[in-house]
Design a protein around this nucleic acid. Structure first.
Lengths: 197, 197
DNA sequence: ATTGTCACCTACCAATTGGTAAGGCGTCAA
DNA sequence: TTGACGCCTTACCAATTGGTAGGTGACAAT
């Protein structure tokens, strides 16, 4: 029945393994051999499927961005859609710490691999959020710079916190972080609800 | 007059070079050879001074923490000190992109190198900010979790943006990022001025 | 039966990694 | 004058890196 039952599964297993290893140790820190052995195959099988490490990394990134965008797009646009999108983003971000770490690393590494464009994937997502904010009362006539800044503040608050939880738990305690995690959404709602001046 | 005029200079030059390369490419991405050549000496001279790559990294981290702590301590506490501290933090963060990137990487790598505690020095900084927020009208009686969450949102907004500028310039344009950078402080002030509910 | 394609393998490669060994050179104290 | 020490060098090293070459076996189409 299924035309390609196993092959695709292998590819996905590679991407999954690569995803978590890149998230954990970064692009340079994770090796092809390590990723392949995680799946139980050889490095050359990995190369056979993706061509090069860069391309594998690209595939991983694309997977994340597609998930991110899909999640945004299945939410209806509308009057209160921005707050909803932010709330949901907070939940998914905390739920997928690997993806979050990887995106953060990409942000950091991009300078070195400049112009190689690993993050154009993220643009539709950012633009989607900006679009929703512009439909919000008080933002219809806002300048692009203000909309971008506001979206990015929220994105920053969410992602930075998500990435920090492990460190914060070491620094304070698991209980403290749990409390923060509970206090976060309400304040995020407040932040998302801000209007200009 | 000076007891050790040259030797220390070399060490500092190594730390400086290592700092920017670690910030740029991460711990694994930057090589000892590269760092040494940046200074005009050999890899073995680097090893002679620091013993190992890990120790060099530790020295770099310590340098940053000392700078950070020094900057925090010269700011007075007071009634409106929170907004001032946030404003100043925004400026210094944007002014030292290398340090910011490196700290962000630490946050990400900490999981792998867990309990190695590269971030203990962030705690007094966080606590200092929380202290100042608690003195703000509307926050005197707030729960610890709410204060922590609010401080961390601001910190996240600032650091995430600072780290993203390069990527954002690629994704949009330098002009767009410049506009965002100008729009940021006003919105940050708004965010910092929020009170609970 | 032949051909081609796909997934995967072993064998190999040059380059680079962090690190060691040993010695040259200058300075300073005995 | 000698010896010790700090700074830095060349010469190596084993291990690991990403990637190539060439092949094996399974399966589908011809």
């Amino acid at each position: 029945m299924s035309p390609t039952p196993e092959p695709i599964a292998t590819r996905d297993r590679f991407i999954h393994a690569a995803s978590s290893l890149f998230a954990e140790k970064g692009f340079y820190g994770a090796s092809m051999d390590q990723i392949a052995r995680e799946v139980g195959l050889t490095k050359q099988a990995l190369i056979h499927h993706f061509g090069s490490k860069e391309k594998l990394y690209g595939a991983v990134l694309q997977g994340i961005s597609e998930r991110l965008l899909a999640q945004l797009e299945k939410q209806p646009e509308g009057a209160a859609s921005f707050a909803v999108a932010v709330e949901r983003l907070y939940q998914t971000t905390l739920k997928n710490p690997g993806d979050t770490r990887l995106l953060m690393r990409e942000l950091l590494d991009n300078r070195a691999r400049a112009a190689k464009a690993g993050t154009w994937y993220l643009r539709p997502f950012l633009d989607g959020l900006a679009e929703r904010l512009r439909q919000q009362p008080g933002w219809e006539k806002a300048k692009a710079r203000d909309i971008a800044a506001h979206v990015y503040q929220i994105l920053g608050a969410i992602n930075f916190f998500a990435v920090s939880t492990v460190t914060l738990e070491q620094m304070y305690s698991a209980a403290h972080v749990k409390a923060m995690r509970e206090a976060f959404p309400a304040q995020l709602r407040q932040l998302a609800g801000l209007t200009l001046n």
